[in-house]
């Protein structure tokens, strides 16, 4: 069996090629599905744990968190189960509302970016930010996770509502690096323009959807006593 195989010069019939490619494709598909099914539960559990840690990271003041959702009428209701983009309310040890953590998703440069941000009811601003999932270009787009001046945007990113409380007073927008003048602007990253603009768009869309509802309903929602510990 050693040594190179004899070189064939005659053409392989087409059916043989179909047979091999379809056969290999089917085998590969079977293998992928098997592994997917076998690991799905553990991956989901890992992701839930990761999410819980991330929530604790962006809203460290929270002692307990409650998962909430929106019902068909647009009202805030407690939910069980894990939606694709979960939203949490955080309460401190005495049961007072400390803030909300919102998951948001949108298209980046390479693929969907999923982020987590926390909202402070006290100062009406986004006060925490963490990237959950991104496939942005290593060395450029992934700077949204490490670039200090970009992360400094989320010390207090203004997200106050307009007079009737239906939308943000000022839309969150990404500006060119170093050109930030207003508290609702995101100081972008040179070399990762598309990614940093995408973060601005994701936050703006999500905040416009959630913050009016949260501001209206969150206080009237009673915390579930001894709920899931964060």
């Amino acid at each position: 069996m050693n040594g190179p195989a004899p070189v064939q010069f005659e053409r392989t019939p087409a059916w043989k090629m179909y047979r091999s490619i379809v056969g290999i494709g089917a085998l590969c598909a079977l293998l992928i599905v098997t592994v997917f099914v076998a690991t799905a539960d553990r991956i989901a559990a890992n992701q839930a744990r990761f999410l819980a840690r991330a929530v604790a990271e962006v809203l460290p003041a929270a002692h307990t968190t409650v998962s909430v959702g929106m019902d068909a009428a647009g009202r805030l209701v407690p939910t069980s189960g894990v939606p694709a983009l979960p939203v949490f309310l955080g309460y401190d040890a005495s049961g007072a509302l400390t803030g909300a953590v919102i998951t948001a998703q949108g298209m980046g440069y390479q693929d969907n970016i999923r982020v987590l941000y926390s909202y402070s009811f006290e100062i009406d601003a986004i006060v925490g930010f963490k990237v959950l999932d991104s496939k942005e270009t290593p060395g450029l787009g992934d700077k949204i996770e490490i670039e200090p001046h970009f992360l400094a945007n989320f010390e207090a990113l203004d997200a106050s509502l307009n007079a009737d409380g239906t939308a943000l007073a000022n839309p969150i927008v990404t500006v060119k690096e170093g050109a930030k003048t207003e508290p609702w602007q995101l100081d972008g990253i040179t070399g990762a323009t598309i990614t940093s603009v995408a973060i601005g768009d994701i936050l703006n869309a999500s905040a416009n959807l959630w913050i009016p509802v949260l501001e209206r309903d969150a206080l009237s929602l009673t915390p579930v006593s001894d709920g899931e510990d964060s």
Binding site: Q8, R11, T12, K16, M17, S20, I21, G23, I24, G25, C28, L31, I32
Partner: peptide, 17 residues
Amino acid sequence: FIPREARIVSYICIIAT
């Protein structure tokens, strides 16, 4: 089983899996 003409695509398919 893999014909010579279709070997690269087969290898890549296997590796990607």
